[in-house]
């Protein structure tokens, strides 16, 4: 990680936002350093988009403050906006303008010098694999290409902070890989990236994560330490009938939670040394036969479910 670790690119303090009687965001605090990829993770309705919009200065908070590179977003919105780039969840570029025209337009809005704009747009178009589509109308691009174009327009100036709201939703794997390659490159240049995602695999690629639920941050740390914070030990049991297995195991003594993971289930237990033999006996009694029970590395999803759903909900 480059830069001074004390330096803060984004500082959020006591952020709250209500829509009518719904508390969309409640007393959220976090800070993002240059070179961080900070992930806001949570289910739909957790408040991810509302937080991103307030960071971008397009929605005003009811309480709390946001500083981007030391500039208060509410007090000096235009100054703050010069330092950040925002990619909304819904494609926000002009579909009736070509790729090149969109890039030109956003370059001009950020007053990027002409030579710099040309050089950067060439570089970014190549990195995104979009050189051949410069003259195509943005509306005629595929979903993945649209998102990459969004990223190019966001990066045509040099932002200190990049805000991406669910940037890879509906994006094919190849485009997603291109996308992340660009993000890692930016990270090395010291750009602070804040992204929201509902994809757990994507969450694992972040340097720091905030787990959001009903507008509150439940946990905020590096992915590794978040995993350590999971109560209990995770076991994986493979089976041809994972649903059936789960029904048998859920709620048994020492079982803290279960989670379906395709052809296996994740079982969270308090004491593996004692519970593994117990589970094997239980499964044998139910006629499932001897199952292979192994310890598993928890993923972010396991932690999430452990923290939020007590493991019993699907």
């Amino acid at each position: 990680m480059s830069g001074n670790p004390i330096e803060v690119a984004v500082r959020v303090q006591g952020l709250s936002k209500n829509f009518g009687t719904v508390q969309a965001v409640r007393n959220v605090n976090f800070s993002v350093s240059p070179g961080d990829i900070f992930g806001l993770v949570g289910p739909d309705g957790a408040g991810k988009t509302t937080i991103m919009r307030m960071l971008a200065g397009v929605l005003s908070p009811d309480a709390g403050s946001i500083a981007v590179d030391g500039v208060d977003v509410s007090a000096n919105p235009e100054q703050a906006k010069l330092r950040l780039s925002y990619m909304p969840q819904r494609f926000g570029l002009y579909e009736d303008l070509t790729v090149a025209e969109n890039i030109f337009f956003y370059g001009e809005l950020f007053s990027v010098p002409r030579t710099e704009r040309i050089a950067r747009s060439k570089e970014l178009l190549e990195a995104a694999g979009l050189q051949a589509f410069r003259r195509r109308l943005a509306g005629q691009l595929s979903g993945g290409m649209k998102q990459k174009l969004g990223l190019i327009c966001a990066l045509i100036h040099t932002p200190q902070v990049l805000l991406l709201d669910e940037p890879t939703t509906g994006v094919d794997p190849v485009s997603r890989r291109d996308f992340w390659a660009i993000l890692y490159d930016l990270r090395e240049r010291g750009v602070a990236i804040v992204l929201s995602t509902a994809y757990m695999d994507e969450a694992e690629r972040c340097t720091r994560l905030a787990l959001l639920h009903t507008g509150e941050i439940r946990l905020c740390d590096t992915p590794a330490r978040i995993k350590e914070a999971m109560p209990g030990t995770l076991l994986a049991i493979s089976s041809a009938h994972p649903r059936f297995l789960r029904e048998i195991i859920a709620g048994k003594p020492g079982v803290l939670g279960t989670l379906l993971m395709g052809d296996r289930i994740h079982v969270r237990v308090d004491d593996p040394a004692r519970r593994i033999p117990e589970l094997q006996i239980l499964l044998a009694d139910q006629g499932v036969g001897i199952a292979d029970i192994v310890r598993a590395e928890p993923g972010i999803e396991d932690v999430f479910v452990a923290l939020l759903g007590q493991g019993n909900k699907s």
Partner: peptide, 14 residues
């Protein structure tokens, strides 16, 4: 209507 406003107002344009 076309959803381009959100990104536009996130830029420094007054």
């Amino acid at each position: 209507e076309r959803g381009t406003m959100e990104q536009l107002i996130s830029t420094p344009v007054t």
